[in-house]
Simulated assay, not measured.
Amino acid sequence: MKKHILGFAATAAFAILAAVPAEAHRQWLLPSATVLSGDDVWVTVDAAVSNDLFYFEHFPLRLDDVKAWAPDGSEAKIENAATGRYRSTFDVHLTQKGTWRIASVAEMLTGSYALNGKRERLPRGTTAANLAEKLPAGATDVQTAEASNRNEIFVTVGAPTTTVFEPTGKGIELVPVTHPNDLYAGESATFQFLLDGKPAAGLPVTVIPGGIRYRDQLNQIDLTTNAEGKVAVTWPEPGMYWLNVTTPRGPRGAAGEDAAPARRASYVTTLEVLAP
């Protein structure tokens, strides 16, 4: 496999969109609640990139790609959106009973091309669909790597439903064996992950409880999906948890940077675990 040369701009964009190692910055969506009831229900969501979960201290998550889907699968409106210095925030009016999905999904290309005897980097915002128009005339030896990044949360009004979990076949997706809004401390939950529509076997799964700022230990849980793409998590205590699944990084490049694999995917979700 050819090595792909990644520039600073592409790397910076990918760092914000993709999940990152445990010691680095993490992106997240944090709902005001995940289990609700009533007839006129709203959820407020904070969105940020930070070291500490879930504390605003680094960078706001941009809302350009954030969308919401109602329990019947229809797209819903993002309301009252605002972006500040350290976080973004928005509301969703939950007008239907059942489980809602709120997600930021990004498909992008990273890589480089040759032009006039020099290697140039693909500009930010390059995708498979617009690659031809992003390349200048005379570009040759185009080398690309696909990146699929999904950051999503689930909120349920009344009884849980499953329509919003219908896979799209793109990137890493969660298929619940245990519903993500039915989690309790001391109990085990099982999730299945798909990669491009197929069971994502052998992928590392990282689970970290929120409140890192207020304890000495990270309390990270490291797991691996089985042959069916499934993983079981036992929740040690109530609270909000950050869960990340990602494809492995490529080999180290000659310049000390990670060489991008031909396909890289990342998945992030925030889960609320309730007291039994």
Rank of each mutant, 00 (worst) to 15 (best):
P136W: 03
S50T: 14
G117C: 04
R87W: 01
P199S: 05
N244A: 15
L109Y: 02
F165L: 09
N130F: 10
G250R: 02
R252F: 00
Y113Q: 06
L6C: 02
G111Q: 02
G138F: 00
D64Q: 11
Y241T: 13
E120K: 05
G38C: 01
N226M: 10
T162G: 04
L109V: 05
V157E: 15
N244K: 15
Y267F: 12
E152G: 05
A137R: 15
A128F: 04
G253V: 06
T144D: 03
V207R: 01
T190W: 02
A254V: 13
L63A: 11
R26I: 07
I212Q: 12
T127L: 03
T161F: 13
K77W: 02
T83W: 00
G171M: 03
G171H: 04
A159V: 07
R26K: 14
E75N: 06
T246G: 12
V177Q: 00
L63P: 02
W242M: 14
Q220E: 15
E23W: 12
T246F: 13
V157Y: 09
P21H: 04
V233E: 01
A106R: 07
V205P: 05
V41H: 13
E57Q: 09
A254Q: 15
E146H: 07
Y267R: 06
L135F: 01
Y55G: 11
T247H: 07
L29H: 01
T126G: 07
R101K: 14
N149D: 09
E133A: 09
R121Y: 13
K134S: 09
W42H: 14
R121I: 13
Y267M: 03
T168V: 10
E152N: 08
V43L: 02
Q27R: 09
L203H: 08
A147G: 12
F14K: 15
L53F: 05
E57A: 14
D72I: 00
L183V: 06
L29E: 01
M240C: 12
A12T: 08
L274Q: 13
G256I: 07
A275L: 14
S188K: 11
G239N: 05
T156D: 13
D39K: 11
F14P: 02
G202W: 00
P176V: 09
A19S: 12
A22R: 03
G186L: 03
S104P: 00
L194R: 02
P199N: 11
L122G: 05
L195P: 04
T190P: 01
L115C: 09
A227M: 08
R26H: 13
G7I: 05
V92N: 05
P261I: 10
A9L: 12
S112F: 09
W235K: 07
V233T: 04
A13V: 12
V49H: 03
T190F: 07
L131G: 06
V20Q: 14
V45E: 11
G125H: 03
P251K: 10
V155E: 09
N51P: 00
T11R: 13
